Simulated scan of single mutants.
Amino acid sequence: MQDHPYVGMWVTDDGEVRHQLLPNGRYDEARGNRESAYRGRYEVTGSRIEYRDDTGFTADGDFVDANTLHHGGMVLRRI
């Protein structure tokens, strides 16, 4: 189990991209009408998040504060 304050739903302001960070270290990302567009594992170290989707693609991001995530040129907010 992941023990950090960032578990939950993170969404871009336009609602187009939605990251569900699950407590078991998995994530599910929806894009537009495409639910579960990407799925995989994530790991949080401090304020940094590292993603590895199930196809092997990797990405990362930074939590600016408890409610703001910068990832891949996007800003996601906790809902």
Rank of each mutant, 00 (worst) to 15 (best):
residue 10 W to C: 01
residue 35 E to N: 13
residue 6 Y to C: 05
residue 57 F to Y: 13
residue 11 V to T: 12
residue 17 V to Y: 05
residue 2 Q to I: 13
residue 64 V to N: 11
residue 55 T to S: 15
residue 10 W to I: 04
residue 70 H to P: 06
residue 71 H to W: 10
residue 70 H to C: 04
residue 38 Y to M: 06
residue 55 T to V: 13
residue 74 M to F: 04
residue 36 S to I: 03
residue 47 S to R: 11
residue 41 R to S: 15
residue 49 I to C: 07
residue 69 L to W: 04
residue 50 E to K: 11
residue 48 R to N: 12
residue 23 P to S: 09
residue 53 D to K: 03
residue 34 R to N: 15
residue 7 V to A: 07
residue 31 R to C: 04
residue 52 R to F: 07
residue 61 G to F: 01
residue 15 G to A: 02
residue 60 D to L: 05
residue 47 S to M: 10
residue 59 A to E: 12
residue 63 F to D: 00
residue 44 V to Y: 06
residue 43 E to T: 15
residue 58 T to N: 10
residue 37 A to H: 12
residue 49 I to F: 05
residue 61 G to K: 01
residue 25 G to C: 09
residue 63 F to G: 01
residue 17 V to M: 02
residue 52 R to N: 13
residue 18 R to W: 01
residue 34 R to C: 12
residue 44 V to L: 05
residue 2 Q to C: 14
residue 7 V to W: 04
residue 73 G to P: 06
residue 73 G to D: 07
residue 23 P to F: 02
residue 76 L to K: 00
residue 48 R to I: 08
residue 7 V to I: 14
residue 18 R to I: 06
residue 54 D to Y: 07
residue 37 A to P: 10
residue 9 M to A: 14
residue 7 V to T: 14
residue 43 E to R: 10
residue 73 G to W: 03
residue 17 V to W: 02
residue 57 F to H: 15
residue 23 P to L: 03
residue 49 I to A: 06
residue 57 F to G: 15
residue 60 D to T: 12
residue 19 H to N: 11
residue 9 M to W: 10
residue 22 L to R: 11
residue 66 A to I: 11
residue 50 E to H: 13
residue 47 S to A: 13
residue 30 A to F: 01
residue 9 M to I: 13
residue 1 M to N: 14
residue 23 P to M: 02
residue 45 T to R: 07
residue 12 T to C: 01
